[in-house]
Amino acid sequence: MHLKEADLKDFLRKYSVAMILLIMIIALSLFSWRFLRPSNLINISLQTSIVAIVAIGMTFTILTGGIDLSVGSVVALSGALASGFIVRNGFPLYSAITLALLIGVGIGMLNGLLIVKGNIPPFVATLAVMAIARGLTLVYTQGRPISGMGDDFVYWGSGKIGLLPVPVLILIIVLILSYIVLRHTQFGLYVYAIGGNEETARLAGINNDRSKISVYMISSFTASLAGILLTARLWSAQPNAGVGLELEAIAATVLGGTSLMGGYGGTGGTVAGAFIMGVLANGLNLLEISAYSQRVIKGVIFILAVMFDIYTKKEKKKG
């Protein structure tokens, strides 16, 4: 009996995300004929891609046992900066985007340095940086949206290659890159090692500090990228863009099977987790449930995902 339970947990640990997603898709297509229409599916992918890209970076920090609460603010800041550089300073498109991304990565480095060199717990350090980055966005934009970036910028959010919207394509590229980094590079292995047992990693001669700073830089990079795509999709940079996005990114990560304790999980699951939430939101819309109620449901789902994580990890420690 005991063995079976362990096997069940193991199975759930590995495949539950895919199963939940599949069940939801089947259920929703039965409930609403509109759900399976290609335009609706593309719409879900487009809406999910922003959260999913942010969540991929978030997964890196959570895998090390950390967390990054600043992503929502970084989304807003990088969108505002890229737009401002184009509209106010007349920078060429790619210079503006590159510069905004670099500043975003710099904020990630700040997160990492505060955590590693300042010994501040990730929750606190990134909470503070979340406030700082949001404040900087408001200062820079004077609280007003920035628009008028031109068609070549807007293309990054609203364009299509074949049937695929550009942000979805970028999500796929980011996902593939993250998979290669996590599963095939030394750095990726160290991310898991640090989350699993930081002291062991240190004793193995690994430079934990460098790896930890790197994951926050990655998290900020994906957030900045998502911020630029979001701005391009909305045709304007909103000073309040990305508010609450950290919760959605964390929820996608945990739903996707990555342990909040660190050391276990991956970005494939995270993207599936983001799609679970995207499909759910879409389904609730189709079922005409109000946006306010949807928030409550999202919160409940988040709690269930964390409880599930704790359940599948429990009792595994005993040999």
Partner: peptide
């Protein structure tokens, strides 16, 4: 015991000393 629970036996044995290929960044699993 100083092993990392959710890494494999092999990953634990060579942690910090993985055999690599291409640019020294990729692990030769």
């Amino acid at each position: 015991l100083a092993l990392v629970p959710y890494l494999t036996v092999g990953q634990n044995i060579y942690l910090g000393r993985e055999p690599h290929r291409y640019l020294k960044a990729f692990i030769d699993w």
